[in-house]
Simulated scan of single mutants.
Amino acid sequence: MNRDDEHAVVLLSGGLDSATCLAMARAQGLTCHALTVDYGQRHQAEMQAAARLAVSLGAEQHRVVRVDLAGMGGSALTDAGIDVPEQPGTGVPVTYVPARNTVMLSIALAWAEVLDARHIFIGVNAVDYSGYPDCRPAFIEQFERLAAVATSAATEQGHAVRIQAPLISLTKAEIIRQGSALGVDYASTVTCYQADADGQACGRCDACRLRRQGFAEAGVGDATRYAPDAG
């Protein structure tokens, strides 16, 4: 399928899901523009991974935009004073970053309009996820409705942007199988909530638990780089 004349903005965090999302968008023949949002997360290893993945997965370009969500706090991923939980809990966990996906999609929507891109890809998942409200189908559907009335491209030219969430109904194992088939190097991804400066995973947080379980259920060797003291 050759759709190189169609452009897509792909949100690329540097993690397993977003890397798979970029690979899937490229497999559709889309010209992909990778967007990483540095929102004040605990470590820079994710951004470094995103830069590597943008190159290896064939993105046309890679842009990093900085937004200071850490200045507002309220999440274990942005506030060093809040511990990352290492046991599963109930309800929305403290690793939820308030309005993060709303902010990221808004930035992606702005860039998509500049690029005349008709697609925005985001690697949210509503199956093997941590209970975040902005990873659910209802959120994606509502944001796409917002996009249809929020830009000049949509209201004046009829070029509404589609919000693509191809992983939303997949298990982690299914995501890993699809990404593996598309050649994603999962050893280059960083998913851990408290990875070290080299991007090595703790093996104990919720993100590590879901990732490890996904590799086991997929029957694929776990490519994760774990820290020496990983759980």
Rank of each mutant, 00 (worst) to 15 (best):
D17N: 10
A197W: 01
V114G: 06
A153T: 06
A154N: 01
V67C: 06
A197T: 09
L210C: 01
V10C: 03
Q142K: 12
T95P: 07
E156A: 13
A54E: 05
L22K: 08
T189H: 00
S75N: 08
D198E: 15
R26W: 06
S152M: 02
A54R: 04
C208M: 07
I140P: 00
E113H: 11
F215K: 03
Q200K: 15
I163A: 03
G91V: 13
P228L: 12
L105T: 13
M104W: 02
A34V: 11
T155D: 02
M72W: 12
A70R: 13
S180F: 01
A76G: 14
D196P: 03
L22R: 05
G81R: 14
S75Q: 07
L170F: 07
S106R: 03
A197E: 15
T78V: 11
A76D: 07
G15D: 02
V97F: 00
L35W: 10
A34S: 15
S188M: 08
R209M: 11
G15F: 06
Q48A: 14
A195D: 09
Y186M: 08
E60W: 09
A23V: 03
I120C: 07
L11Y: 09
S130L: 12
C208E: 05
A126Y: 12
R42W: 04
L167P: 02
G219Y: 08
D116I: 01
C208F: 05
Q178V: 12
D229P: 09
Y39F: 07
P88R: 14
D196L: 01
R42H: 06
L35G: 10
R225L: 15
P137D: 07
V55I: 09
G203M: 11
L109E: 08
G131A: 09
H7N: 08
D229E: 15
T155E: 09
W111N: 02
R26E: 12
